[in-house]
Design a protein around this nucleic acid. Sequence first.
DNA 1: TTTTTATCGACAGACAGTCGGTCTATATTG
DNA 2: CAATATAGACCGACTGTCTGTCGATAAAAA
Lengths: 208, 208
Amino acid sequence: MRKEAMERRNEILDVADELFGQKGFDGTSTNDILEKVGIARGTLYYHFKSKEDIMDALIERYNAQILGTAKEIAANKSIPVNERIIRVVMSLNISDGNGKEIMDHIHKPQNALMHQKIQKVIINGLPPILTEIIREGIEQGLFNTPYPYECMEMIVAYTNTVFDDDMVDITDEERAARIPAFVFNVERLLGVESGSLMYMMKMFGNGD
Amino acid sequence: MRKEAMERRNEILDVADELFGQKGFDGTSTNDILEKVGIARGTLYYHFKSKEDIMDALIERYNAQILGTAKEIAANKSIPVNERIIRVVMSLNISDGNGKEIMDHIHKPQNALMHQKIQKVIINGLPPILTEIIREGIEQGLFNTPYPYECMEMIVAYTNTVFDDDMVDITDEERAARIPAFVFNVERLLGVESGSLMYMMKMFGNGD
DNA sequence: TTTTTATCGACAGACAGTCGGTCTATATTG
DNA sequence: CAATATAGACCGACTGTCTGTCGATAAAAA
């Protein structure tokens, strides 16, 4: 019945995560959440100051999970630069730890605000991580660009919108057709020979 | 008192436009709208089936205005390719006709859903228009890329997020510093010599 | 014992959308 | 031409839902 604040907080967050994923933020009422957790109205508002506060806390969690894993991989200099880039990008998709795919939850309709906030986390958090790897690559003579950060920003911004189900109206086939073009463009941006980044296409095995 | 359906509809849309711009979509109640228009609740719902329906109609309007102007300019083959690109991009910002800057309204906080819907219109509508111009440029030997469409898509996706006030947390100075890097990257994407697109920097006189 | 922390649930206020009905201009008919 | 029917625009009270508040209460800590 009575629990530590942090435990309750996480219980609420877990339920909110599930419900927002199913019905979206607007489609989920605070009642839905507190009933499923099994607490009273006042208790919910004892732990969170508003419904949006719940979402922000949830995003904070995602943030830590998603970017934390990415950072870890990026810092592991024992992995070759090429391979590390791939692993960082792929780590964005499947994390969560419990099998649930975070990104799947986000790309639901009716979650505009959440979607926007996550996008913001990614567009601000991911380029710095990737840029570090690219810098190493430049030192090793693998890449060649005077603006590694802006390159990464462009690439992240692009994948985040075009490979986002509810942003661009294209079929899966059309989206698949975008990939070689994307790789080609990335090659130009990073100043490498055409075709030399083809191996990166395996990143697109799943979603993003 | 009694008016043609289309007239009323536009009256409501005008007020909604103003109010959404001031207080955001969520911050504006249907009461706010109908009071300012001077009609009863039922009347509002006689013309629109829901609050979101009002927003969709508003976006439809923007869509027509924004992309319509862009299309017009893009089709005017008497303007040289280089100049035409600049004009198309600049037309996105100031249109509206009555001095109000559409884009300013959109980049308000609390408008996540609207923001997303407009982004969608742009990311789907603008690249085809620009691609046509780029194709001309390729024929004229100005540009060189096998993937003009995807190039434009990338550029539009990038400018739409990075030069969007509430998406990337940077100061105006930092944002200004992004511009030369952006131009450099565009030059690479379009396969032109470094420095040859510098003249395009004048596009960034105002906002986007 | 006193204070702090977690919990409860009734309540207020706001808001989106509904519905039955009204009013008026225009068309139809006797 | 006058009586009447029709349809389109409009009204406003009402419903149900939802978020956030508050004072009371119980349990644990100090």
